[in-house]
Design a protein around this nucleic acid. Structure first.
Lengths: 342, 342
DNA sequence: GTGAAAGCGCTAACAG
DNA sequence: CTGTTAGCGCTTTCAC
């Protein structure tokens, strides 16, 4: 038979004191005598007592838990953001409740419900690619739950946000390609309904314009940010005889697909064609030639996001603070984009 | 002012019925009239009602939450296991509470406490490298909480376990190297206090023995399973003039470090030296030459782990079922281990 | 320094 | 079909 876990009542009975005293002792309340505390602690140990968090939280009306919604946990970027978030939230006494939207709006909505039902102290969210509007976030705001968006955000929303400065990252990268002498720079991007790809496109465009070039004159592919989608497209693209000088892929995986297509087509990188990615995935430095890309500082994004939330959690006032932080990414120049000296 | 969230009492008052009726309506109890249900549903919507899970769980005495402890969330292997676990637990109505031990025993102990305090329905754990004994797991067992270990397990413990058949994986891989004609096969492994590396070593040894070779005659390095640890060691090792035929690294990262050291030393892979890894990290197929490795089916490990837990959760009897499942890994032969035809 | 009493929000056995 | 009643385990005023 599964014996019931011990309660503070059980401890109280055993020691002939009341539950309130036990509760206080357990929480190291200053007005409880050393003697009583010691007795309680020992009894607790002996009886294998464990606080019932649900009961405590119900009573206190809060759970010291913050909810975090990410599209997918097994993406390098997001798992690093999580690590960053925990590194500041845990020391502050909060637990993280992680949910995956699996890039689906419907899941995102359900996750939000679960979190509200759990009375989380705050919510951190990065939108799914499917998400076009943020009506479902209103629920969070209506319930007065502090909200911080990160990475994939809705810039129009009046809530704290932490983003990568995607525009700057893409701008720097494109400029680098231009400085290397490339003029026909293909755009290979994820869907621009998503803020991150839209911003990267803007950076790309601005860099081109600074050289009196127009993105409209450049080859362009927009599709899922995956290796296969890029590989399939480029295979066909090369077969039709197209030859851009360089390819700016908005993800290292798309860059990878492009590199494989180049290899199949017998094109040498970077001599025949340059390739650059985005995100600095672990493999970017490991492949040969090494991939030029942009480092996003994902853990720092997580830490900043968590700090913004803590700000709101700590703040006495009820006025919602909505700060926007933009983490400056760093261009990492490696081999795939360097024009060799002839 | 943060207005308090609506409760079933609030709804009851508004509709002039009792809280119990509201509760039943909300849970779609069969004996409540269509009419009442509709009224309740609508009122709930209007008042922006959200169940207070803490209260419900406290009352029900359980939370339908299972706890999962992994060394690190941002490791490809573990985040995939998590995905697998969620894919079977979520449909069954359970939520996952994920904690990271950060490879520290102390954190592991704290995580377990948190989970017991949260009255989780079950616990899934993969031990930290630091963990030498499993005394702290007794707490879980003492509390009658179903426990399933995966990947890094304590084989002596009488609880359900899901592991990769590391011995078979390492055996197959070593055999492949032997069949390719390599005879001086270096062991480059993670710490053998950990079950996974110990088992891989056994597979390696057995394969060697089947060729009348002894592991003691082979070069050997045991250290942290990271790129740098391997790189540092091999750099020095090569400098001293050592030249194994092949290197069996127990992680793709160690293999990667070895490959870099080879490059620095001017050794060509696989012509001068063969290299093989373990885990089939995403980059393994992307580097050049492509890395021979072992696929572990991490998502399947997650699914199997979750299923074993569900078995116990569903089972009426109190006798602990302890099944052990071993997922057969698959050798993936790529370029780094293929002896070229002369 | 400790006790008494109330209640967080919900569910469920029992009654009608 | 719905109401009454009790209580899950804890915290926290208010007493003394």
């Amino acid at each position: 038979m599964a014996k019931k876990p011990a309660t503070i009542q059980d401890i109280a009975r055993k020691l002939n004191i009341t539950a309130s005293t036990v509760s206080r002792a357990l929480n190291d309340h200053p007005k409880i005598s050393r003697h009583t505390k010691d007795a309680v602690w020992q009894a607790a140990r002996e009886m294998n007592y464990q606080t019932n968090t649900m009961a405590a939280n119900l009573r206190k009306g809060k759970a010291n838990t913050v909810g975090m919604i990410v599209p997918r946990i097994n993406r390098h970027f997001f798992s690093n953001v999580i690590t960053g978030v925990e590194s500041v939230l845990n020391p502050a006494g909060y637990n993280l409740m992680i949910c995956q939207s699996e890039e689906k709006l419907q899941k995102e909505i359900e996750n939000i419900k679960t979190m509200i039902a759990n009375r989380v102290s705050g919510i951190l969210i990065s939108l799914s690619v499917e998400t076009r509007n943020t009506r479902h976030l209103q629920r969070i705001i209506a319930n007065q739950i502090p909200l911080v968006m990160f990475d994939r955000v809705d810039p129009k929303l009046q809530v704290s946000q932490v983003v990568n400065d995607d525009e700057a990252g893409a701008y720097d990268l494109t400029l680098h390609l231009l400085e290397q002498g490339f003029r026909k720079i293909m755009w290979m991007g994820g869907p621009r309904i998503s803020s991150i790809y839209r911003n990267r496109y803007n950076g790309y465009r601005k860099a081109l314009e600074s050289y009196q070039l127009s993105p409209d004159a450049m080859p362009c592919f927009e599709g899922p940010a995956t290796l296969v989608s890029a590989l399939d497209y480029m295979r066909d693209f090369f077969q039709k005889g197209n030859r851009p000088d360089a390819v700016f892929a908005t993800s290292d995986y798309m860059a990878m697909g492009t590199l494989q297509a180049c290899q199949e087509a017998g094109l040498s990188v970077p001599d025949d064609i340059a390739v650059a990615g985005y995100s600095n995935e672990p493999f970017a430095a490991l492949i040969s030639p090494k991939l030029t890309t942009v480092e996003q500082f994902s853990e720092e994004i997580g830490r900043a996001t968590a700090r913004l939330l803590l700000d709101q959690l700590m703040s006495e006032s009820d006025e919602t603070i909505s700060r926007k932080i933009s983490i400056k990414p760093k261009l990492i120049i490696r081999e795939t984009s360097l024009k060799r000296k002839k």
